[in-house]
Design a protein around this nucleic acid. Structure first.
Lengths: 207, 207, 207, 207
DNA sequence: GCTTAAACGAGACGGTACGTCGGGTCTTGCG
DNA sequence: CGCAAGACCCGACGTACCGTCTCGTTTAAGC
């Protein structure tokens, strides 16, 4: 997402280690200070980098934090649970574990809040974070259909609508539990949530 | 929520009209500028009030915005729908309508993000905004139980857990749909969501 | 200088003790804080008086400090020294003693500085402080002429000019010594100064 | 007096034109507004400079005004008058001309007043303003001794004392005449003053 | 002793300036 | 040309005082 396909030919190339150092420094600053007290000057200092280097690569605080938080979601993957309920439980637990981290808590909601007034930022969040999660929903449903737990989709449009709905419910519920209710999305909660969701899906699919 | 019951006896009393003017100005600024570009100096100017007056009544931007947004939720009430599904649909539609407003979009997620690092702010949000919504969930379930749509609760603890779960699912899903997916939570979406939820509740209650 | 000749007939009369308390509090604040950090709110608190009481009697900080400092000069009087030089020495020592006090140091030069842009303030300083000192110069010269140490004045105009000149030299030199050179105007310095001045006066009068 | 000999090697160097612009703006503001209504924000605006730039170079209003006023004294020099009286008259007239300017009137006494509570400020005033004047007194006396108008000094200590005394008298008298008496130190006054001083010096030297 | 009206304490009010901080840009010299 | 360093302009911060205002409460003079 930082690719510069039209690479410049001459001059000193950009430091390859700087990006990683900056993103790590950003996450560290998020943990210590939170979004609102994080400053780019401080991030630059922590990363051992000049402020100009930072601005050469990111447009501002929002974009930087999106990239820093996005890396946390790299580890998300669909576990092989054997059943729809087990698959959902596994994914939700992973998602809850990431959201439980302070750097995600502090940063993610803040950039989402910012994105309400910044279309480009919303697109960046979608590309870097959201779509990566949504892929798991798609994959999970395909597996459930292969197992016969869910019927195949009738048409593409309603299929997409269902995926979006499930995704909003899963991600939204975990986020709300974690940030607004400020209670951990632990195994017990995830099991209750999953049961309700799966039974709703089965009943809806049956009707 | 700004009442000071142990009121001091002497001195000039605080202006009674200022609070309302300030909160209205705050919402107007949220619509025009969004959370991050909202400044307390600007709010004061819009409200025709000195900055000091503002700081005398609120500790900072976060507290002010919480109160300004909270007033939006004053109008929430449980409609008389006649069935659990209709009640839920009615509430969710109201909630979605409020969240669709730009002043709520801009402000609410931002203060939630801030609240991850500020316990007092989280308590304020809970008191001013969240609990008011949760009351509707409680009331809706009581009605459904009176109608026989849902069985009575076995014990208080599991009852509270269920309310919390439903609340996180309802509020979280609508928020995620509105802010992250950035699509309107319109009637069609609400109907799909409600169906899934209600069928899940019924099936879970039956098991 | 606080007289209100057109006395009101009815209503509660002004507190008679407040004036003295306020002026004393002003001097105390001058000693502790200096001119620039002295605030009227603080003076009011020290005097056990409301800010409104203070503003009812003085127009502002400048006027208040002039009055507070002026009281220091109440004790100035021409000692009976027996000779022109002794009289001058006595007066200069008294003047130096007053200027040595921190409340005078802090306050006097500040109001003089302010008076460069405020004609009314300059008049108030002249009336309250300067003229009282100048009277001593007049009186001292009259004594010296009575003793035959100085010749009588030829005409009124040149007489006034001479008094002004001497006054500027005496007051200005002591002030400069005390505040700018920041050295005490002690007996040795006063003796040297007086000698130079008196010999100059004699020689000028002889020519 | 703003030189930083141990200059840092890296980073953007400080603007060389800003200092002069700021000091000129300060003097302009002194003329228009006077000391007490002069604000650093206004000075910065006048100079076309950010407030931070100003604070990066001066600790506060006092230090800035000292430097701004000090530049006025750059033009002071001992004229070639041919006699002690003529030399003194020339210097005093120059000094009076500077003190007659509104920017000096407003600023100088104010910083002297402030310096009564601030040792560092007093030192700055002495270095930037006072010592430059005192040099003229020393030089003038040396010339008078070379001409035979004044006897050579007996010892260094009494020599210094005499210089200090004369300096306090000259500077103090002109300041008092200008600021307290608020009358111009014009040629007539300067001549009278000089006569008195020179005759006093001669008579004292003779005794 | 009752009335009356101004002075009083308290403290909120609309302002202005403070001195600091962070954002994002620029100008250096070095690599 | 990238980069570290740091000065630059800008704008907002939260605080401190200013001088004014509005309260309810004294307090003395005059009826």
């Amino acid at each position: 997402m930082l690719s510069r396909p039209s690479a410049p030919r001459t001059g000193r190339p950009r430091s390859t280690t700087a990006d990683a150092a900056i993103l790590a420094a950003t996450r560290a600053a998020l943990v210590e200070l939170g979004w609102s007290k994080l400053t780019l000057g401080d991030v630059a200092t922590r990363a051992g980098v000049a402020k100009t280097t930072l601005y050469r690569r990111w447009a501002g605080k929002n974009e930087l934090v999106v990239d820093a938080v996005a890396e946390l979601f790299d580890e998300l993957e669909l576990p092989e649970g054997g059943s729809l309920a087990a698959d959902i439980e596994g994914v939700v637990l992973q998602f809850a574990a990431i959201l439980g981290r302070p750097e995600a808590k502090s940063g993610l909601m803040a950039v989402i809040a910012e994105s309400t007034r910044d279309e480009a930022l919303r697109a960046r969040i979608r590309t870097s974070i959201v779509d990566r999660q949504k892929r798991l929903v798609l994959e999970g449903r395909a597996r459930a259909q292969a197992r016969g737990e869910l019927p195949p989709e009738a048409d593409a449009a309603s299929s997409a609508r269902t995926v979006d709905l499930i995704f909003d419910m899963v991600a939204g519920s975990v986020v709300h539990r974690t940030l607004v209710s400020a209670e951990p999305a632990d195994e017990a909660w995830v099991r209750s949530f999953t049961q309700l969701l799966v039974q709703g899906l089965r009943a809806t699919a049956a009707s």
